[in-house]
Design a protein around this nucleic acid. Structure first.
Length: 157
DNA sequence: CGTTTGACTACGC
DNA sequence: CGCGTAGCCAAAC
């Protein structure tokens, strides 16, 4: 079966998780999606590819009014969610894209010349374990590359 | 109301 | 390792 979540119930769940992302850190669409319980009757492949897009949809509903300045500042840090490459996925040069970068930089997140952040430095490690259990979400997939580049271990021998 | 497009990601060249 | 594509559903036109 395909994965077609109802935005009415799906979006608030996403927002709930996004609220946990800490100041000065970034998460990815895929990481947020990885915390969502997967319905048993849904094809795993579909879920893997579609859930991140739905996360983007959920955030789109929030950032639009925010960037236009027509609404009260949201308590949902939508700007801390970027793509798996470490870049901003909003249309380059758009008003909302610049706002996102501006807010991240204000939090100390830096971008290289290619417009990418270093996920190994700024990547979110996930919510508190207690919060995770209390809300019934899965442990997020790590977005920091496993820095198994630890030659000191090998040099012991 | 049919088409097009996309805040994605995994995978294959 | 970078680039293009497949896959799928909802929004946006």
């Amino acid at each position: 079966m395909t994965y077609a979540p109802n935005p009415t119930t799906f979006n608030p769940i996403v927002w709930d998780i996004v609220r946990q992302v800490t100041h000065g850190h970034v998460s990815t669409y895929g990481q947020i999606a990885s915390m969502l319980p997967q319905p048993a009757d849904v094809d795993a492949q579909d879920f893997k590819r579609l859930a991140p897009m739905r996360v983007g949809d959920a955030l789109n509903a929030v950032s639009f009014s925010d960037a236009d300045g027509q609404a009260e500042p949201t308590d949902i840090p939508w700007w801390r969610i970027i793509n798996s490459k470490g870049g901003i996925s909003l249309p380059a040069g758009s008003r909302v894209a610049m706002l996102q970068k501006q807010r991240l930089e204000a939090e100390g997140v830096t971008f290289n010349a290619q417009g990418l952040t270093d996920l190994n430095r700024f990547g979110w490690l996930g919510p508190d374990a207690d919060w995770l259990v209390a809300h019934g979400f899965l442990a997020p997939k790590p977005i920091r590359k496993p820095d198994d580049t630890s030659p000191q271990q090998l040099s012991l021998f």
